[in-house]
Simulated scan of single mutants.
Amino acid sequence: MIISHRHRFIFAAVPKTGTHSVRQALREQLGDEDVEQVGLFVDKRFPWEDLAAIRHGHLSLRQVRPYLGEEVFSGYFKFAFVRNPFDRFVSYCAFMLRGGDDFQRRPHDMMRHFLFEEAPEGHVLFQPQASLLVGEDGETLLTDMVGRVENMQGAYDAICARLGIANRPLDRVNGSQRGDYRPYYDQTLIDGVAARYAQDLDLFGYSFEGLR
C-alpha cells in the first residue's frame, strides 16, 4: 500500500495484480511526507506500529482507515487493480510452487490441493481481492476507481490523469510467461474457483471467459 499526502491518494496493493509495476512507477512521484508498506523487492514500513508489524504490503483499506482519520480517508483518491480470479488463481498456484516443477507437471492436482484439500485460508495472496477493498459491511467498495490488469496501462494512465501526476509506461516486474489460464482448468476447478471467489466475480464483472 502507498499513502501519498502530496498527491492525496491511497493505492491498495491487491496481491497478484501487477502491484510492483504500479508501485515502481508511483514511487517516482512521491515526496518525503508520503509512506509505503511493502515486503518484496523493497522493504518499507508504515509509521504505525500495529500495521508495520504485519510485514507484508497488502493491507486492506479497512485496516488503514482508522490511522488516517475519516477526513483524510474520505478525501483521498483510493484505487486498486484487480484481475480475473481464474487467471489470478493459476498465478497464485504457480507462485506458491515456484522453485520446483510440481505445478508444471501436475497443474490440476496442485490446483485441487489449494482449492479443496489444504486451502490456505489465512494467506493474504489466497484471499478474495474484494476482502482488501470493501468496507465493514463486507460488500461496499471503498475505492474510487478499480483498474484491471487486463488493461493495466490504460487504467494507470487514467489514474495518473485523475491525480494530475505524470504517467509513464509500466515496467514488467515479477511477471511470468505462462500464457492463457483457461487450459489449466477442468469443470471441477472452474466450479471451485467460481464458488470461492464469487464476490470478486460479481463485484468486478468477470467470468471464466473474461469480462462479462
Rank of each mutant, 00 (worst) to 15 (best):
V149I: 14
R148Y: 15
L142F: 14
G135Y: 05
N167E: 14
A155F: 11
F77R: 02
P183D: 13
P169T: 01
D101I: 06
G138V: 10
D144E: 03
F126M: 11
D101G: 07
G164N: 14
V149K: 10
G192T: 11
T188S: 11
L132H: 07
P128Q: 14
P169M: 11
R148G: 05
R112C: 08
Q187Y: 09
C160A: 15
F126I: 07
F89M: 04
D137S: 06
T143N: 00
G138D: 14
A161T: 09
A166W: 08
E70K: 05
A80L: 00
R168D: 13
A130I: 02
V72Q: 15
L68M: 03
Y181D: 02
A158W: 08
Y184D: 04
E150T: 02
D137V: 07
L61Q: 01
G75A: 03
V173R: 00
I190W: 05
A194W: 05
C93D: 15
G179V: 09
D87V: 10
P66V: 08
D144L: 01
C160P: 11
R162M: 04
E117R: 11
N174G: 08
Y185G: 00
G164M: 11
G164S: 15
R178P: 06
R182L: 09
G100S: 13
G100T: 10
Q187I: 03
P66H: 08
Q63V: 07
F116I: 04
V146K: 04
T140K: 07
L189T: 14
F103D: 05
D157A: 13
